[in-house]
Amino acid sequence: MAKITFITTDDENITLEADSGSVMALAVENGVQGIDGDCGGVCSCATCHVHVKPEHMSKTGDASEIEQDMLELDDNVNEFSRLCCQIEITEDLDGLELTVAG
């Protein structure tokens, strides 16, 4: 089981638990504001953009080239950006903190 915390643009902290699936799906199922996941998780819509807490980047790993290409043209991109549909939930993510890019 991994506990994952989302911080929304309204500064609301939402901590959720799961052991599988994508981080995007977890957020959408629980109505996390700002994570829409319009394309269902195939890296096409960029509506699940988050900023990973800098010290947690090692938990999530880096974005793939296709994901980076998507992020490159997003207005709120920074070096900690990920599309969370591309982050699979495992126990290693326990304690992960993500800020919704908005």
């Binding site: 319009d38 394309c39 195939v42 890296c43 096409s44 296709i66 998507m70």
Partner: peptide, 24 residues
């Protein structure tokens, strides 16, 4: 079941398709 599918069938960026949710 294509997993990575960064298509632009609904356009891209600020003018992406307004009706995409309805279409999907």
């Amino acid at each position: 079941d294509r997993k990575m599918n960064p298509h632009v069938g609904f356009g891209f960026s600020h003018h992406n398709c307004l009706g995409a949710t309805h279409a999907r």
